[in-house]
């Protein structure tokens, strides 16, 4: 017993360090990068830029919170971006016909889209990347069909509905507050409810979670459901921020949201993750993006950098102690 507990302690130590490594690195890189960008361009830390950063960050953060649930199950949601695009377009169109009620309709749409993903995955037993790849294609097509494949501007009559966006509290814009509240809600779901606990358990060990008597299908569907809501809220934020419904606005955010969640410590092998930490990931990504814009680096670098970041973050979160693990 004693000799095993000794080696167990060692394993524990190494686990702990590797577990927190990505988080520590993420926080450190936020600080370092901010300093670098300030050094290159003193305008980086101006309060207007901070407000800009927080504003840019909110849709990404919201989406990252959503997709974090799905990643925790070691599944993936590739439809996030197109649900957001579709939401943005729907909001713009619906403002003209039903006014502020559009907000509710769009969120209901997000719920439905998430539910569909979840049900395809659980009841039809379709692997999540295929199911969401399909719905991604479907919702993208719907967005393009509704908008006629071009950006739809919000016309002056509907501007009163989006007036609230301009409210700020000091340097903190209201959109950021909204994302914060959503994150809070999601954190409560993750930490304080049965469903949240079930998600973590089944990401780690699905057969055990099943035999323990946890409701697996419900947890999976809920994860996709929450991801769908987050995507539609993200879409709404895009639309009101840009005063238009752009049918491809969410596309690039899919990878960025996954990257944010991964940088925040969610492991694809499941069983590990914290909604709260997505703020670090989303912050890092937006600071990189914003910094690149400020120092005028071409846009295509972003795709390269974020792609690489996903790989690095997921590599660091992966549990390399499990030698027998078969990864497909």
């Amino acid at each position: 017993m004693n000799e095993t507990s000794g080696s167990v302690l060692d394993i524990l130590k190494s686990m702990l360090s590797s577990e927190n490594l990505s988080k520590i690195l993420s926080v450190a890189s936020i600080v370092v990068l901010s300093l670098v960008f300030v050094a290159i361009n003193p305008r980086f830390m101006v309060s207007r830029n901070i407000t800009n950063i927080l504003n840019d960050m909110s849709p990404l953060w919201v989406m990252a919170c959503g997709v974090a649930f799905v990643l925790m199950l070691s599944s993936i949601d590739l439809s996030l971006g197109s649900i957001a695009s579709c939401s943005a377009v729907m909001l713009t169109v619906l403002f003209n016909s039903i006014g502020p009620g559009a907000y509710i309709v769009v969120i209901i749409y997000g719920m439905l889209a998430g539910l569909i993903n979840g049900m395809l995955h659980t009841y039809l037993k379709i692997p999540s990347f295929i199911a969401t790849l399909c719905t991604q294609s479907i919702w993208q097509s719907v967005a393009l069909l509704i908008s006629g494949a071009k950006p739809l501007p919000m016309l002056p009559p509907v501007w009163p509905y989006i007036e609230w966006v301009k409210i700020t509290f000091g340097v903190v814009p209201i959109l950021f507050i909204i994302s914060f509240l959503l994150m809070l809600l999601y954190t409560v779901i993750q930490k304080k409810t049965k469903v949240g606990r079930t998600m973590l358990a089944l990401g780690e060990n699905e057969s055990a979670a099943r035999l323990i008597g946890l409701n697996i299908n419900q947890a999976k569907i809920t994860a996709f459901f929450l991801s769908g809501i987050a995507a539609s809220v993200g879409g709404i934020i895009f639309a009101v921020k840009l005063k238009s419904g752009i049918p491809t606005v969410g596309a690039q955010y899919n990878l960025m949201a996954i990257a944010s969640a991964a940088l925040g410590g969610v492991a694809l092998s499941g069983g590990k993750g914290d909604i709260l930490m997505t703020i670090i990931g989303a912050g890092l990504i937006i600071i990189i993006q914003n910094g690149m814009n400020v120092i005028a680096v071409d846009g295509y670098w972003q795709q390269i950098v974020f792609g690489a970041l996903v790989l690095i973050a997921i590599y660091m979160n992966a549990d390399h102690n499990r030698r027998d693990l078969v990864v497909k």
């Binding site: 694809l268 295509y300 670098w301 792609g307 996903v310 997921i314 693990l325």
Partner: peptide, 27 residues
């Protein structure tokens, strides 16, 4: 190589690689 040695699921690796390569393509 990344999939096998890093033990990262292939869909994730190739999804990220796809993004990286589109970046290089535009570049």
């Amino acid at each position: 190589f990344i999939h096998v040695k890093g033990k990262i699921p292939s869909f994730m690796v190739t999804y990220a690689i796809s993004s990286i390569m589109s970046g290089f393509a535009v570049m």
